[in-house]
Structure formats: structure tokens, C-alpha cells
């Protein structure tokens, strides 16, 4: 679903690259954590998938398509196939929960009937049944993030990118969000989640891709936040 082929991204010629010849593949329907310190390249990875940035070298494939070959007027079509969730929710404060989710459908020209049918369904999936008329500020952080997830998946994207979705939430609420993401993943959506949250990674036991300084230093299935392979000191030290 997502494939990076020797991808390098340089923002500033004088500094080290944000991503340094990264090659990896995330299969359709997979759930992958992207872990690593700030500045390790997680956000750059997500931006490249969305074609918000262009890879300096190498090729990024999303849903079998080389994103470098997607012309600028077809980028929206690429993004319709990708849902995104952020740490800061990014809801529209002057719209109700329903309108926030419906917004994602309106801007791509869905009919009113389809919107009225789909939005409540999606709100139910994320556990916000009957809260469509609330305003974002009337909701808890966890509920706001559920709205953001609903908005991200309402157009049924094949991929869901989550950039530290639990970063602003307490552990219990975070678990709730994770079960929503897990449910969405089980419905067939590929989920890539960048996170710092070790508890969550440890409890989910999914694939973990660890970035450090722009390179992949670990890529394990059903892994923990920190490597289970003990660091072996070099001989003679």
C-alpha cells in the first residue's frame, strides 16, 4: 500500500537529511507504528505519503502509484484515499460534530442524502453516537479526537495516517482511541501511526518501525516500543 524506495528528503542542503535512503513497505490492511525521537523523520515520512513534500531522491509509491508522477491537479484524488489525524485534532470550532465530519464530504461534492446517511454511521463507529449536534468545545479531548478520526475515515480512505493522535490525551482515553483505530484497521484500512507513546505500542503488539536520524534502525513485527534484542557491545569494550 505504501512503499518507499531509497527515499531521501533534504530540507536544508547544509543540514543532514530528514530522511536518508529509507526503503520499506507497508502492506494493505497492515497496522504499523512509526516510532522515534522528535526530528527522527516520522513527520517527513507522513508528508511524503501525502505528497505535501517531494522526495529529494528515491521513489514513494502509494496504492501502487509513484506519487512523483501524480500531476498537481490529481493530488486531491490521492488525498481522498488517505485519511489523516493529528495530535491537535484540527476541528472547526464553529461547526457541530456532525458538520465537522460532513465538511469532509461536502468539499469533495458528496450529495446531501449520502452525507446524512454516512455521517451518523461513522460517528457510531468511533463511539460518538448521538453526539452529532454538540460543538467541539463541549467535548472532551478524547471525544474531539474521535471526531477527527470520524472525519478522516468518512470518505472511506484506504490508508489512515495518524500523527501522534494520543499525544494530548491521558492513558485511559488513549486506549479508547487505539481501540477505535484498531476497529478501523480491522475493517481493512491500512493504519500508520507515528507516536511516542510506549505504553500504547507495547499493548498493541503491532509492527514497529523505528526511525533515528532519518534512517530505519528497526523494523519488527508484533514488537515493543523498545527493542527486545539486547544491544550487544562491540568486542573488546
Amino acid at each position: 500500500m505504501i512503499r518507499f524506495d531509497n527515499v531521501t528528503k533534504v530540507y536544508d542542503q547544509t543540514a543532514r537529511p530528514a530522511l536518508d535512503s529509507v526503503s520499506l513497505e507497508i502492506e494493505r490492511g497492515e497496522f504499523a507504528f512509526l516510532v522515534g525521537a522528535s526530528g527522527s523523520g516520522k513527520s517527513t515520512f507522513l508528508r511524503l505519503v501525502l505528497k505535501e513534500d517531494k522526495a529529494t531522491r528515491g521513489t514513494v509509491y502509494v496504492a501502487g502509484q509513484n506519487v512523483a508522477n501524480i500531476s498537481s491537479w490529481r493530488v486531491p484524488r490521492l488525498r481522498r484515499g488517505i485519511g489523516v489525524v493529528f495530535q491537535d485534532f484540527r476541528l472547526l470550532p464553529n461547526k457541530t460534530v456532525f458538520a465537522n465530519v460532513a465538511f469532509a464530504m461536502q468539499v469533495i461534492g458528496r450529495s446531501r442524502g449520502i452525507i446524512r446517511e454516512t455521517v451518523p454511521e461513522v460517528l457510531k463507529t468511533v463511539g460518538l453516537e448521538g453526539k452529532g449536534h454538540r460543538m467541539p468545545h463541549e467535548l472532551s479531548g478524547g471525544e474531539q479526537q474521535r471526531v477527527a478520526i470520524a472525519r478522516a475515515v468518512v470518505n472511506k480512505p484506504g490508508i489512515l495516517l495518524a500523527d501522534e493522535p494520543t499525544g494530548n490525551l491521558d492513558p485511559t482515553t488513549s486506549q479508547g482511541i487505539m481501540s477505535v483505530l484498531d476497529k478501523i484497521n480491522q475493517n481493512g484500512t491500512t493504519v500508520v501511526m507515528a507516536t511516542h507513546d510506549d505504553d500504547i505500542v507495547n499493548s498493541m503488539r503491532k509492527r514497529v518501525i523505528e526511525l533515528r536520524g532519518g534512517t530505519v534502525v528497526r523494523d519488527e513485527a508484533r514488537a515493543l516500543y523498545t527493542s527486545m534484542i539486547p544491544a550487544v557491545k562491540e568486542a573488546g569494550r
Binding site: 486531491p76 484524488r77 488525498r79 488517505i82 485519511g83 484540527r90 469532509a104 469533495i108 470518505n155
Partner: peptide, 9 residues
């Protein structure tokens, strides 16, 4: 948000 959900230019 419009950009992210793939609204056309």
C-alpha cells in the same frame, strides 16, 4: 482540512 480530505483546487 479541505486540502487533507482531498478537496479539488
Amino acid at each position: 482540512i479541505m486540502r487533507l480530505v482531498g478537496a479539488s483546487k
